[in-house]
Amino acid sequence: MRATLAFLTLGATVALTACSPQQIVDFNRPAGDNLDDGQFGNATMNNTLVQTGDRAMAINLNRRFAAEVDSTINFAFDSAQLDGEARAKLDRQAAWIAQYPYVKFRVYGHTDLVGSPAYNKALGMRRARAAVNYLVTRGISRARLQAVVSYGETQPLVVTEGRERKNRRTVTEVWGFLEPKRLLHDGKYMQRTYGLYVQSAQEAHDTE
């Protein structure tokens, strides 16, 4: 039995050595942690989301969000200031987010590899908060936005020890749903939902 376990451990280690840093991070990440609101623990939250169907719905919405707007903004070196390009992208994010009043979003902050891990984690958090604060000014409720996670320098898009603008970023993602008020008919939400059905009916469909 011990020999079998040792063999499996060795095999997993060999497999991971061939993976990129991002793949290794994803391998070690608990299932469902990007949809966890911090109240129940990752495993329980993942099970709850799967049973209710919210997990699949959140994943689908997140894919749609990323396809329809740019979910990533970038920053100057050692800065959490939003430039004109970043604000324009956040304006488009805010317009999309406003269409779904019961959907919650999380903003992840990242840095490049220059600087200490502690400093970069704090810088990543400042960037995430800057994005959240701007979205709030565009009319999005702060209750629907969280900047509670900073990956700091641990998830670079471009692996380099030097300055890299693509790594200095925030990423906005769908991560859950607000609990809607019971017995409350939200006319604006229903109007938007109806509009989506009408739009879908007018789109060209493959009948073959």
Rank of each mutant, 00 (worst) to 15 (best):
M1A: 15
R2E: 10
A3V: 10
A3C: 07
T9P: 01
L10C: 11
G11R: 13
A12R: 09
A15R: 03
L16S: 14
T17S: 14
P21K: 03
P21W: 04
I24H: 01
N28L: 13
P30D: 09
N34H: 10
N34E: 12
L35K: 00
F40K: 03
G41T: 01
A43C: 00
A43K: 00
M45D: 05
N46D: 09
T48Y: 05
V50Q: 09
Q51I: 11
D54P: 01
R55T: 05
F65T: 08
V69Q: 07
S71T: 14
S71H: 10
S71V: 09
N74K: 05
A76W: 02
F77I: 13
F77R: 09
D78Q: 15
D78R: 13
S79Y: 04
A80H: 03
G84R: 00
E85L: 02
E85F: 00
R87D: 00
R92L: 07
Q93K: 02
A95F: 01
W96T: 02
I97F: 11
A98Y: 04
Y100W: 14
F105L: 10
V107D: 01
H110P: 05
H110Y: 15
T111I: 09
D112P: 11
D112S: 09
L113I: 05
V114H: 07
S116I: 03
A118W: 02
A122D: 12
A122W: 04
M125A: 14
R127C: 07
V132Y: 05
Y134R: 04
I140V: 15
S141W: 02
A143V: 06
V148S: 15
V148A: 15
V148Q: 13
S150G: 11
Y151G: 10
Q155I: 07
P156Y: 02
G162M: 05
R163P: 09
R163Q: 13
R165H: 04
R168I: 11
E173F: 06
V174A: 05
G176W: 04
G176M: 04
K181N: 11
L184T: 12
D186G: 08
D186L: 03
D186H: 12
D186F: 05
G187T: 12
Y189F: 13
M190Y: 14
T193P: 01
T193R: 13
L196V: 08
V198F: 03
E203L: 08
A204G: 09
A204C: 05
A204N: 11
D206C: 12
D206W: 11
